[in-house]
Design a protein around this nucleic acid. Sequence first.
RNA 1: UGGGGCGUGGCCAAGUGGUUAAGGCACCGGGUUUUGAUCCCGGCAUCCGUAGGUUCGACCCCUACCGCCCCAGCCA
Length: 561
Amino acid sequence: MIKTDEQKDRALDFIRQIIAEDLKSGKHQRPVTRFPPEPNGFLHIGHAKSICLNFGIKVENNGVCNLRFDDTNPSKEETTYVESIKKDVAWLGYDWGKRPFYASDYFPQLFDFAVALITKGKAYVCQLSPEEIRAYRGTLTEPGKESPFRNQSVETNLNLFKKMRDGVFGEGSHVLRAKIDMTSPNLNMRDPVIYRILKSMHHRTGDTWKIYPMYDYTHCLSDMLENITHSLCTLEFEDHRPLYDWILDTLDTPCHPRQIEFARLNLTYTVMSKRKIMQLVEGNYVEDWNDPRMVTLSGLRRRGYTPSSIRSFINTIGVGKRDSWIDMTVLENSIRDDLNGTAARRMCVLDPVKVILDNFPAEQVDEIEAKNHPQNPEMGNRLIPFTRELYIERADFMDNPPRKFHRLGPGREVRLRYGYLIQYVSHTTDERTGRVVEIHCTYDPETRGGSAPDGRKVKGTIHWVSAEKSSPVTVRLYDRLFTVENPEADKETHFVEHLNPDSKITLNNAIAEPSLIELLPGDSVQFERQGYFCVDPEESEEGIPVFNRTVTLRDSWAKKR
RNA sequence: UGGGGCGUGGCCAAGUGGUUAAGGCACCGGGUUUUGAUCCCGGCAUCCGUAGGUUCGACCCCUACCGCCCCAGCCA
């Protein structure tokens, strides 16, 4: 058993326990799993749970995990989705081997299995309309009725099924159904449709096929053909397991994978369903599928989440069968935790106000040395220009501060991080708006680097940036997309009404220290005292970075107030 | 009212008949700190949906009840 960094010292979840037992008993030599997305949309954090589970099991046990596209519904699927899914799985750090698999590769074999089913008298072609099939199915409490076509001869069924394949019939006119039990309390067993006629273009097989197999029929057989040992899926498929097993048993296949169901991920303050995500995009509530506020993997990537932070997040939430809601703070914690160790520290003033050091020579430029990481000397140092005119954060000055305010104000002295101690002299205010225009201070030349030879202490250290030697940059402050934990909880209110109006705040005049301009798209840094930010890969240009706030730093001062 | 699942602190989650009922997130204190960050220390379920029962002993076994989720696509 190989334990990855992300899941060391954690008890095995119930699925890994089952697998460990199957390995120990010799039932299997190694586990074979699969991640089977339908290529009809983009992957999100919920998919990451399945990906990390299936591929994680492979990595931990030296097994196999296939990437298989479940492409049995040509009307919804596209090659662009195939490509984006491959990109996201690879980005998460997983390797699906030589090639991805496709359910559509099995269409010929699946057809032969269907013929075998018909021959065994276990499937029939039904000409009931969709409405009639529904009516014949019965309800949750009443049994269904048998189709009048149920007892047709094998020859008739074979003949009809081949005509279906040959495109003789129109969509909706005929289906192939498994002959099971119309009185079963499990609706999935009431002669489920296993093939339907569809005349749309398939993204891989084009118009070769006029009939397409249904999920329940396809999935178990695809698993079997790939020698999957454990077929992991979400809870809503529990009722489908009897059908999964029935098909493999009836066909008497050489192997019979075990389906195990686990709870899907729910995350607070966001929406996860494909339909809801699509509504956000189409209603222009967000900019695209990869909007940094989205929990799509492409959105999280653009937001600055790292693959390892997502793997560690998935690992901490566990795998079980309870419908649970994971608090968004858990996800946020995972990226803070990761970036805290790896992100270089930088200074950037988001909402600048000018500070003038009256006793600092106008032409002088001091090159101040600053650590790139306070706990990791290996990350080295850098030089930052220090000049007479600086910018500090507007929130770091108060005309009339409360006692506990550790920053700049009348009569106060603060430390400019890695710079000098500065002492307040005076400030000017715009008469109309009441806003502070500029603050005059003096600096203590003896305190270069930030410590006073006389040992005097200051309570506050604030970040700053040279007014002349720095560059304005665009910074987007992203926050949670919704203001409530579960935007879909209330059936009366449309979920978009719970959208957070401040989920994206664009700052066009943040001032960045010089080294920030050299960053490459995707790079992550910590803006000291602010949060973690990454260079947006879409909208940045060389020398003109656009920063996305990944997550804020914890702020116990903000909490106190 | 049929069937399939699930109920351990605010949110997750270990626990599989004998434990002071792990751990993480959140929250609350305190310490260190040139980020009110990080880090460190401490606090946070006499109780495991409820009620009975079995047992020397039950969160773990049995019974009943209650609550929540899923299922009536020719979607996956």
